Simulated scan of single mutants.
Amino acid sequence: MEPDWKPLESSPDTFTPFARTLGMAPALAFHDLCALEPWALDMLPAPPLAVVLLFPYTQAHLQFVEEQAVTLPPAPPGLFYMRQNVKNACGTIAILHALFNLASSGAEVFEPGSVLATRFEKWKGLTPEEIGSQFRADEELEKLHREAVCGGKTDAEAPVDSHFIALVEAGGQLVELDGRKQQAVAHGPTSTANFGVDCLRVIQEFMDREKGSVLFAVQALVRTG
């Protein structure tokens, strides 16, 4: 049986302090993306380095995942990818997916000696399943997640029917990182200049499958300093 954590609130007021507690560099921050139009990207203080999407975890989504698994192309090499085997840990895993893949590209995204820095080194070379097992047993990460949940404004005891994933650029591809899937999902070519617009396209595809559901939230990770 999976351990059952409490869900993170989808808000920069939760994600940014929590990620900085884990060791994210002070120059990085999460910001809400208020629309899926290109003008919304211009409202951010800087272009997105990664995107975190919260979406409805419905039967329609699960059916699509099953169909998608049959034709998935290989993911780009060198990705950091972990499997999720802890209920409601998807927010923390999305943060790890975003920051660790930026670090893999050579970006300076966390403080030396921090929780993020030590896990990044510890988990190098492990399989997604092995990383997931180590995450599940990590009492420090669970404690910090729990403290972040307590700082949110929404009811952490309410039933959860949504899920966080991360979108990153890796190897010239826009990549979806969802620990509930068998592998990372490549969504086609992208670049630093086009990454934000390409993310909007992929998120719109999620929304179209849910036939107009409004239970979506999007946060962009940006460098502000």
Rank of each mutant, 00 (worst) to 15 (best):
A117H: 15
D155R: 11
V175T: 06
Q173A: 09
K124A: 13
T154S: 08
D155A: 08
S162Q: 12
E169G: 01
A137Q: 14
A148V: 02
A158Y: 05
I165K: 09
A156P: 08
E140V: 08
A158G: 01
D161I: 04
I131F: 05
S104V: 02
G106S: 03
F135E: 12
G106M: 07
G132R: 08
R146V: 00
E139A: 14
L144A: 10
G106Y: 04
L116R: 14
D155L: 06
A158P: 02
P128K: 06
A137F: 03
R146M: 01
E142L: 09
H163E: 12
P159R: 12
A117S: 14
E129Q: 14
K122N: 10
E111L: 13
E108D: 11
A137M: 11
Q173R: 11
E129L: 09
D155M: 06
E139V: 09
E121R: 14
R119T: 00
F110M: 11
P128D: 05
G151H: 13
S105L: 06
L126T: 07
A103Q: 09
T127F: 00
P112C: 03
E147F: 10
T118H: 10
T118K: 15
V175A: 04
L126G: 07
V175G: 02
F135N: 09
L116P: 09
A103K: 14
S162W: 14
E139S: 12
E142V: 01
E121K: 11
V109T: 13
A107Q: 14
K143F: 01
L167I: 02
S114W: 04
T118S: 12
E121M: 04
L126V: 04
V160P: 00
G125S: 03
T127W: 00
G113V: 05
T154H: 07
K122W: 04
F120H: 14
L116T: 06
V109D: 10
A103T: 02
R136M: 12
A156Y: 09
F110H: 15
E111A: 13
V160M: 05
L144K: 15
K153Q: 11
P112L: 01
P128L: 04
A107G: 00
K124Q: 15
A137E: 15
A148R: 09
G152F: 01
A148W: 07
L102C: 10
F110D: 07
V149D: 03
V168D: 03
L174M: 10
V109I: 07
E147K: 15
Q173N: 08
S133K: 15
E139C: 03
D155N: 14
S105T: 08
R146A: 06
E108W: 06
A103Y: 03
D161Q: 10
A107Y: 13
L174F: 01
G152A: 02
C150H: 15
E169R: 15
E157R: 13
P159Y: 12
K124S: 12
F135I: 08
L126I: 02
L102T: 09
S133Y: 08
T127S: 14
